[in-house]
Every structure is written in C-alpha cells, then in structure tokens.
Amino acid sequence: MTVAEVPVPAAEPDPAPDAEAKLRDLLIIAYSGDLEKVWAQMILASTAAAMGVKTRIFVTFWGLPTFVKPGVRITGENWMQKMMSGMKRPGIAHRKLSTMNFLGMGPWMMRKLAKRYGVSSPAELLEVAQMMDVEIMPCQMTMDMFGLKREDMIDGLGEPVGAATVIGLLSEGSSALFI
C-alpha cells in the first residue's frame, strides 16, 4: 500500500517583530504585607519599569501598611484601628515573614543573606520603582477602614482609588499580578 503524498503547506514565516508594538501595561495588586511578598512586589515593579512597561501598583488590605511613612507608628482614630497598627507595625522596613518569622529572627537573617548576595532591600527597590515612574495607587476603602490618612503615607503616592479603577485597567488590557 502506498501512502498518498499530501503536500505540506510551507510554514508561515514568523511575522517580523514590530519594533513599535506597544507593551501591555502591568498592574500589581499588592495585597500582602508579608516581607517575602513585598519583596516580590518591589522586584517585579522595578523590573517591569526597567523594561519599559507602564507599571502600576494597587495597594490594598495588608499591603497598605507597607506604604506608611517611616517613623509613623500608631495610626487610626479609634482603639481598633490603633490596636491593629500597634500589633502590625507599619512601614516597609518592618515587614514580617509569613513563615519562619521567629520573633524577628527570620527577617534579620533574610536581610543578612540579602546583603551577602547583593540583593537590594524592599525599601531600596521601592525607591527605584518610584524613581522609574511606577504609579502607586492606594485603595481608598482600606485607608478608611484602617484609619490611614494621606499624611500617614509615603510621598509620591497617586490618588486613592477603588476596585472599579482596577477592573477598568484590566479591561483595557493590563496584565495583573495579585501578590
């Protein structure tokens, strides 16, 4: 039996890379305040900006205290909000590990290892990200609920926004990372 020869269509040549192709925007939803996840948020944000990707960070829930000014200790108006900030110290320099925190021993070791291996700290990466025009948008609802005011937050943050802004960006084609 002979097999009928089927003409194989020539492979389509790869389309030439379009030098002017627009990169998709990136939206990082910074939900967690755990040290290791804040690190990931900052590494990806600064890298995306370095690659010419328009990058935004929407900061919500446990992610919000990361962006409280250094030195601001107790935030909020009522005892519940104050207690929350008291138990979970705000600021990017005071993030805890979600695992192996060991009363601060874990983060201390992390910082030591990072230094030894030339890894920049989350605070350094945040500074770089802001320098490279990463837009940081705090969640208005979480700010209200946690009792955080504009003046409690670091400089250079964008206007507080809500979920509709996030969904709007996604529907316009932003890639999203929920960290």
């Binding site: 590494i43 890298t47 900006a49 370095a50 030339g118």
Partner: peptide
Amino acid sequence: RGLNCPMPIVKTAQA
C-alpha cells in the same frame, strides 16, 4: 558586579 537580580537590569535601564 556584586549586584543581584533585578539591579543589573534596573541600573542599565536607568543609564
């Protein structure tokens, strides 16, 4: 030299 991810890329982009 001596810098780890993502700083080589970030510093290059800035330059």
